Amino acid sequence: MTKTHSNCIKCLTKPADADSHVVPNSIRKRLYGEKKNASKKFSFSYVGRPDLPTQDFPKPKLMCRECDSKFGSDLEKTLPQLLMPADVDSPESWNELGLIPLDHGPFKDYPPKVKPLLKRNAALIAWKVMHAVARDGKAPDLSKFLHSPDGQALDREMLSFITQPDWKPSTISLKEPVLWKIEPKTAAALTREEDELPISWTVNYEPQQPKTAIIFAVFGFWIVGWQLPESTLSLHDQLAHWLLYIAKQKAASSQAV
């Protein structure tokens, strides 16, 4: 069954009438404050500033209400307590979580039952990023690929990885999604403000080769990355280039104000 731009990316049949948070709204509720400029995909103010009201993350039309709600109740609700303490202003509480800095890899001493939850949540964010970019009109070759038989087969396999706790590879061998923690000074370098945290995403691939894509999302103190099976690009090199681009874009927008 071929999906259209107006169909839900999960069930493929119902209209995509839900405002789907690419990054779970539960993350925003615990960590973020007010977004100052509606034209930006990042630079939300930290919730540690009590003078700022709460607001919302970007939420493109990706899914029907039923599928979007089911992801929220079945998977995304677990993410905040895995990524952050209840007291986000306590450095000691952050240190007890187990996530370690970007240079050292994605996970530390999480129990075996928790690591799959983190991987599935990371994959869900990346999968929604891929579709959000394909639907925003700026990557027509990615959109075309996702509507091709090969793209649809890959898309369904990625969805199986996300939805099935006991997922086993079939004919498509997926790479592992990753989830890194970044330090506050790194987040501040991206936003140029100590009391602001970034949120942004991208899909990078070789020219006219969307099958080689790497998907990234940065939100708060975390980065998600996922490579499509045919990607041969360096994950760390591509991430470094993208983060530098974000920092330069934020610097340019700040100077223009």
Rank of each mutant, 00 (worst) to 15 (best):
H5I: 08
S6Q: 13
N7K: 10
I9M: 09
I9P: 01
L12D: 09
L12P: 01
P15R: 02
D19L: 04
S20Y: 00
S26F: 04
R30S: 09
G33H: 06
A38F: 09
K40D: 11
K40Y: 12
F44A: 00
Y46C: 06
Y46F: 15
Y46R: 14
R49I: 08
P50G: 09
P53Y: 04
T54E: 12
Q55A: 10
F57L: 13
F57Q: 10
P58E: 07
K61L: 04
L62E: 00
M63F: 03
C64T: 00
C64I: 05
S69D: 10
F71C: 08
D74G: 11
Q81R: 12
L82I: 11
P85F: 06
A86T: 04
V88G: 03
V88T: 14
P91R: 05
S93K: 11
S93Q: 14
W94A: 01
E96Y: 04
L99Q: 11
F107P: 10
F107V: 13
K108A: 15
V114E: 15
V114D: 14
K115S: 13
P116F: 09
L118D: 12
A122Q: 06
A123E: 08
L124M: 14
L124Y: 08
A126E: 07
A126R: 04
V133I: 13
G137S: 00
A139W: 00
P140H: 05
S143L: 10
P149I: 03
D150Q: 15
G151K: 05
D155T: 04
D155L: 03
E157A: 05
F161A: 03
T163A: 07
Q164E: 15
Q164A: 09
Q164L: 12
K168C: 09
T171K: 15
T171G: 10
T171S: 13
P177C: 07
V178P: 00
T186C: 06
A187G: 14
A187S: 15
L190R: 01
L190P: 05
L190A: 06
R192S: 11
E193V: 12
E194F: 13
E194D: 10
E196Y: 12
T202F: 01
V203S: 10
N204L: 15
T212K: 11
I215M: 07
I215K: 04
G220Q: 03
W222P: 00
V224N: 13
W226F: 04
L228S: 05
E230F: 03
S231K: 11
L233V: 03
L243Y: 08
L243E: 14
L243S: 10
L244H: 07
Y245H: 09
Y245M: 14
A247R: 12
K250E: 13
K250H: 13
A251F: 11
S253K: 13
Q255H: 09
V257W: 08
